[in-house]
Nucleic acid binder design. Structure first.
Lengths: 232, 232
DNA sequence: GCATTAAATAAAGTATACATTAATTCTTGA
DNA sequence: TCAAGAATTAATGTATACTTTATTTAATGC
């Protein structure tokens, strides 16, 4: 009964393995552009950089490679994969097929107001962030909206795959966010989609989301072309 | 100029690494049920089995884990993942969203007869296999049809992902293929889809494929329930 | 001085040794 | 006999040593 777990909470931290640590740090550094697209390094270099041996680094790199974030080049080490307009087109095409299907299914399930709460919250925050002109916050809540919708749908494979696609386009989204007008229309579309989910109109939800995705994709691709951003 | 590459062609074989070898063999054994769902083994056991050290085995297992074919259990080794009806439902839902989108895009592109040749060939072979009652051949050409369509579309991420989903449901497809009536309707639907691709009717192609996928999924799920196959 | 080829270099690929830790088994006491 | 706990076991997680091989550099011959 003297059961004290605390005291040295520092030692009872989640206990992360080196592989997990390497994976998380590398992924985060890629997302934040600390390791920019095209960056190339050898395994020993990365191992030193992360303060561990090659073994866990290799295992983390294999995972990042499988997720399409880096390329393992036979005798040259790793390269952080740049995203080309073609990549963007391909990825958004997949998102345009998957997310509307999820939205449609969620609407058909007639979700309760409680289930929709995370979506409502995310939408409100997007609106607030937009008013405040805080683009980073807006992007964060946009992410939250899409994740909440997928969670609600409950197809874990779909959720995981969409998440990995979002990871791949993250850098490009961040860059282009500042090259375009404020995402007023996009925010409105989220509000509209939410109303379709509420009313249980599955076809309207699908259509609404599909057109949202298509316009997002077109806008993005237009910017990449306009600014000659052939590599991100 | 004396440059001869041949002579010892035996030495210039693809030259496969141990990791690749382990990956391919394990995957093949999982597909063929040599390693049945639920099969569990430790890394050293698998290493002995494959005649190599743990290192390449681990790396191959990480890839198989990322693809959803095995589960790496903290201290228990690997387990070949069984497919449950829920998994099947989730996977077919994704396929139902992705493949019709690809079919629609291909139709819109008005493919040439030459481009459609692999699809025509696969369909003919499915019809022949059906007449001959050769279910294995039928399944093989069914696969070929779907792969050819995705290749034609050209979205490599989409192609790769669909392929990995097919890998996951492969065992279940093989089993259920023999529990149901001959796939007459399914074969006809392929022929029908092909005609829509030929005529460039993208909406018809999408609808046709979507209903094909849905009926396939329903049939499959029905069989799993009817035969109480809660794990494959 | 250039091209061809050989040697050196360094990275990935692989094996193995070691550390850590969860599970199991054995022991001990009630 | 059963329960609690300690010791053992064995598997993963990690580091390191070694092997193979592509690339680069150096050397040699024309």
């Amino acid at each position: 009964m003297s059961g004290k777990v605390s005291e040295n909470d520092m030692t009872s931290v989640p206990k992360t393995s080196r592989v997990e640590d390497a994976y998380a740090r590398l992924k985060s550094q890629i997302r934040s552009n600390a390791l920019p697209p095209g960056f190339q390094a050898t395994e020993p270099e990365i191992a030193v950089r992360l303060g561990m041996s090659r073994t866990p680094v290799r295992e983390a790199l294999i995972r990042l490679d499988a997720e399409g974030l880096v390329d393992l080049i036979p005798r040259r080490g790793v390269r952080v994969l740049p995203i080309s307009p073609t990549d963007m087109r391909d990825i958004y095409e997949i998102l345009t097929a998957l997310e509307p299907a999820a939205a449609s299914a969620v609407a058909a399930r007639r979700p309760s107001e409680q289930e929709l709460a995370p979506l409502e919250l995310a939408t409100s925050r997007m609106e607030a962030a937009l008013d405040a002109g805080d683009l980073d916050a807006w992007a964060e809540h946009d992410d939250a909206f899409h994740n909440a919708l997928l969670d609600l749908h409950g197809n874990q494979r779909l959720t995981a795959y969409v998440a990995s696609l979002f990871d791949q386009v993250h850098r490009a989204r961040i860059v282009t966010l500042r090259l375009r007008d404020l995402p007023v229309k996009s925010t409105q579309e989220h509000r509209e989609l939410l109303s379709h989910l509420r009313s249980g109109d599955s076809e309207a939800a699908r259509t609404c989301f599909a057109s949202h995705r298509k316009s997002t994709a077109n806008e993005l691709l237009g910017l990449l072309e306009a600014f000659k951003l052939s590599q991100l």
